[in-house]
């Protein structure tokens, strides 16, 4: 009696296991940074539909979100990400240095392995009371600038580099003048939050500061979420092209046997359907057709890349954000 009961239980457990395996044939883990939550939710659904139609298998893409640097650290420490979609190449480089993927990862997909981009813009209070039009206005003594700490926030490193690049392009611009400009800008920073969302809260909810430096995607989202009657978005004359790249984590994908679907997933990001979703979530699409369709959302802006001006992330990181680097030399706050 007891024996048969045990057998029954075992049998039913086995069934449960089989049923679970059937329900989700393939699972991928996409480890991403914070503000991509809504974007990848819609992309993952669309990709699952297409993969089912093409190959007949169902794919579930699980997500993990967090600060870009912290996410990279989790993957190094053993979070089994099939793909990573982070805020800056420096964090994926860190994975490559640990041997998790090939050093040539950024050449494997078009456009520096960055399917969509953003840029750094200004969010100001409604009516722009301090008349902030361009980077030069941020160093005026009566302007308070809110930005997260470039040392703790990958997104904020783009802010800092955008300001530097602007100063370099001024007539007579040099590393010395750029350093003086960025130093003057950060003297106007009263609070350094550790992440981008924290800085947005400080600016929008606490009412601190006159201008928030933010990714265009975040600025447009903040205006939509927090009220278009409270904030304006100001696009400066020139800014940096923020490139959040994507990559398959070779070691993990090979171990899971998911390389084919992981690569297809990242290629899917470049398709017109996914490009349009990116545009809807305020990321600038690479695809010309999608860009044309959403031209009203994204005003024209001259951008420079980190490779052009700073010789890539490794160099920029070592010069500006390492301990004792330029950011440590300039003082923050008055």
């Amino acid at each position: 009696m007891l024996k048969s009961l045990r057998r029954t239980l075992l049998g039913s457990l086995l069934w449960l296991g089989v049923a679970a395996a059937n329900a989700a044939d393939i699972t991928l883990l996409n480890v991403s940074y914070d503000p991509t939550r809504e974007l990848y939710k819609s992309i993952n659904t669309a990709f699952a539909v297409q993969w089912k139609a093409d190959k007949g298998d169902s794919v579930v893409v699980n997500m993990s979100h967090g600060g870009s640097g912290k996410q990279a650290r989790s993957v190094v420490d053993g979070l089994e990400a099939d793909v990573v979609t982070l805020a800056l190449a420096y964090d994926i480089d860190a994975l490559a240095q640990k041997g998790l993927l090939g050093a040539d990862w950024q050449q494997r997909l078009p456009h520096n392995a960055t399917p969509f981009t953003s840029t750094i813009v200004f969010l100001v209070r409604k009516g722009n009371p301090k008349a902030i039009r361009d980077w030069g206005d941020l160093v005026k003594p009566d302007v308070e600038v809110i930005t997260p700490n470039p040392k703790t926030s990958g997104g904020a490193r783009w802010n800092y580099l955008a300001a530097w690049g602007y100063a370099l392009r001024l007539p007579g611009g040099s590393d010395a003048t750029a350093k003086a400009f960025v130093a003057a800008l950060f003297r106007n920073v009263p609070v350094l939050d550790t992440g981008a969302r924290g800085a947005t809260t400080t600016f929008a909810q606490r009412g601190v500061g006159d201008v928030l430096l933010a990714w265009e995607s975040e600025a447009l989202l903040a205006r939509q979420e927090l009220g278009a009657d409270e904030f304006d978005v100001v696009v400066p004359s020139v800014s940096i092209l923020a490139e959040p790249p994507v990559a398959v984590v070779d070691k993990v994908a090979d171990k899971h046997g998911t390389r084919a679907v992981a690569e297809a997933y990242l290629k899917f990001l470049y398709t017109p359907a996914a490009q349009e979703m990116a545009a809807k979530h305020y990321y600038r699409p690479r695809d010309a057709a999608a860009a044309a369709k959403y031209a009203a959302v994204f005003p024209n802006i001259t951008t420079f890349t980190i490779d052009e001006v700073f010789g890539g992330w490794q160099k920029a990181q070592a010069t500006h954000f390492s301990d004792g680097g330029v950011f440590d030399q300039i003082g923050v706050g008055k």
């Binding site: 600060g67 640097g69 650290r73 860190a94 700490n149 703790t152 926030s153 990958g154 390492s322 301990d323």
Partner: peptide, 10 residues
């Protein structure tokens, strides 16, 4: 926070 900053630089 100093510790977090070091971690962010890996």
């Amino acid at each position: 926070l100093v510790i977090v900053k070091q971690l962010e630089q890996h």
